[in-house]
């Protein structure tokens, strides 16, 4: 069998930590004849664990980092339910939505769980419930936001600012 390179990129993104790569990598179907590599990059620090979704998608001879989103966050390694930092945990499910006659499926990220309180005031030192749904479509080599309803978590803020999300 003779191979030819259809698309390549030696440096698509960074992932992993402490010299180790991410361990959660899957080949996923993103269209009737399209596939992507889904990486869940888990990072830990100061008692907080954050998981970031990365989608690597072949596009016009190269490979794009077509989406990066925080899909889980908790502070289980730091929280103290007896008066310290409240314990929270939230996650997003990642669902590609098959449709007829499309080259690439839409993507839904559904948020649920709890998050840190919005205010640091003593009276509000309880976790808040968070729920939300973001829908994205594939456009020009990237997954871009179509709509978003519901909450953002406090760690989403950086992503929201970077991508000018609403």
């Amino acid at each position: 069998m003779k191979w030819t390179i259809d698309a390549s990129n030696r440096a698509v993104t960074f992932a992993g930590e402490w010299g180790r790569p991410p361990t959660d990598i899957q080949l996923v179907q993103i269209g009737p004849n399209r596939r992507a590599v889904k990486v869940i990059d888990v990072g830990q620090g100061n008692g907080e664990t954050t998981a970031v979704l990365q989608l690597l998608i072949p596009w016009n001879g190269t490979v794009n980092l077509s989406l990066e989103r925080i899909v889980a966050d908790d502070d289980k390694g730091l929280c103290d339910s007896s008066g310290g930092l409240p314990c929270y945990a939230n996650r997003r499910t990642v669902t590609f939505v098959p449709k007829d006659k499309v080259e690439y499926y839409d993507l839904e990220l559904k948020l649920s769980g709890t998050d840190l309180p919005v205010s640091d005031a003593a009276a509000s030192r309880r976790v808040r419930k968070v729920n939300g749904l973001e829908t994205l479509k594939f456009e020009n080599g990237k997954y871009v936001q179509i709509s978003r309803q519901g909450d953002l978590t406090y760690v989403d803020d950086a992503v929201a600012k970077r991508e000018d999300l609403k």
């Binding site: 698309a7 030696r10 698509v12 010299g19 899957q26 080949l27």
Partner: peptide, 23 residues
Amino acid sequence: AFSGDAGAHNFLPCAPTIGMAVF
């Protein structure tokens, strides 16, 4: 993974930099 494969693949060390090629 071959294009027909599905499911997770675990692997060992390292790498902040991720590259990819499609054949």
